[in-house]
Nucleic acid binder design. Structure first.
Lengths: 250, 250
DNA sequence: CGCTCCCTTGATCCGAGTCAACAATCGTGG
DNA sequence: CCACGATTGTTGACTCGGATCAAGGGAGCG
């Protein structure tokens, strides 16, 4: 299997074999991280850049009285802490949701590669833009969508991102989240998440057994969640029936 | 008054006079935009990079049934559409909240300046990181904070950002938002925003008359809104009594 | 085998939304 | 400079989506 970072960047820009070699040479070592363990913790100093190579994690904060908000998910090909190139402290924690493997990279060497490989830095910039669009979309979800729409929207987003990472097949994927995690992502309570998921199952909008989610009817789910795949510009290949891109607009 | 982009970047990195000249030479022309008019509209193609030079704007989307979500605010020194360096379509609209002046820059020339001025590109990267931290903080607000906390948090954030842009004096600033705008920013209803603001006024937490907001007791308001100035890393100068930065942590 | 998560369901409650009406303020044109 | 219409702010009455509290069942794991 290809390096997940290479695979990610090639969604946006074709890389030369020299580019790929430079990226492969970056990772000093891979460190494993156990399920449900913190990979990085809020307030702690970090000196290295961490790349997610295998597994899922989430960025989160704990608020007073123990409330938790999950900010985003980190999947293979994502950088955990690209801000390390400038700051050396974590503003939020990152926890493994499955057993993970994280690549450790020297910020100095990473910057050097960016400076000497314009295709890599462009692809990374593009990837960052898409990740930011995902954050904006989450704001819209949390601000103005109902519980059902939030869940539908999240599932649609995850399918497309995981598919781009080669981690989904057709319309199903492995979902390592508990209903509590989903609640903390979407600003809901886990009891309510359970009720909504139960209803969505009964309506045939999703199939969720064990930790495998299947979306039998993509069009219905996207319509319900007001999911517009265009914000994942570049994550979705042109011609993919599940999505589009702004560039193809007239 | 200095160029707002120069002022912004110098929050993060001292620039040489050559750097400043290069930035000043970028803007081809300034275009005015009337209050409550769209500066850029979702789905439309854009070829230029727009810099906010004067006035406030907001990024927003309109959802089905007319619901609106304001995603973020654009103040002097912000870039409206840095993604134009890669995509040429708007994923959301940007509307002027006050009469604005927007600088128009050629993406090609902008990239050239970034490539030849490492201090500028570093400062801009830093600024982008802070803007992203603001988005993440908004997610936490929308996901897990009460209406009162949301409003308190927003007012604290705005004070610090505006102060960094030289647009606040001491503990007050000009707030061009209607209560409806605040509601659409914080995922609330304007009636409820009104009730909460009325209460906050009665409690002496804020003074809001006309469009001037004053925060008489910073500590109380930050405590109420769980506002942590550290996420504005770099926007707040070391030594500022209203904030801190991660870098100063032990 | 027993503990600990996680899922599920029921009963009840509450923060915020909705609907409605009116007051205050602003902007504009006569 | 004033009149008038259109926003914006304010308040009340009522509703409702989702939170909270509580308790039982199932599955994974040490």
């Amino acid at each position: 299997m290809a390096d997940p970072l290479v695979a990610r960047l090639e969604l946006f820009e074709p890389l030369s074999s020299e580019d790929r070699d430079a990226l492969a040479a970056l990772t000093e070592r891979g460190i494993p991280c156990g399920k449900r363990k913190d990979i990085l913790r809020e307030g702690n100093p970090v000196g290295s850049l961490y790349l997610m190579r295998k597994g899922w994690a989430c960025r989160y904060t704990i608020l007073p009285e123990g409330r938790r908000q999950i900010i985003s998910f980190v999947i293979p090909g994502d950088l955990c802490n690209d801000h390390v190139l400038l700051f050396h402290h974590m503003e939020h924690s990152i926890a493994a949701l499955t057993p993970c493997e994280v690549g450790v990279v020297s910020p100095h060497r990473f910057l050097e590669v960016l400076n000497t490989h314009p295709r890599i830095s462009r692809a990374l910039y593009w990837s960052n833009l898409v990740m930011e669009a995902v954050l904006r979309e989450r704001i819209i979800t949390l601000g103005r969508r109902s519980a059902t729409q939030r869940i539908a929207h999240l599932f649609c987003e995850l399918l497309l991102r995981l598919r781009a990472a080669g981690l989904a097949h057709d319309h199903s994927f492995d979902l390592p989240l508990t209903q509590h995690d989903i609640a903390d992502t979407l600003g809901l309570n886990h009891v309510h998440v359970n009720r909504v998921i139960t209803t969505m199952r009964k309506l045939g909008l999703i199939k969720l057994k064990g930790h495998v989610l299947e979306i039998p009817n993509w069009d219905d789910l996207t319509a319900l969640g007001e999911f517009d795949p265009r914000h994942l510009n570049g994550f979705v290949r042109p011609g993919d029936p599940t999505g589009g891109s702004w560039e193809r607009q007239p």
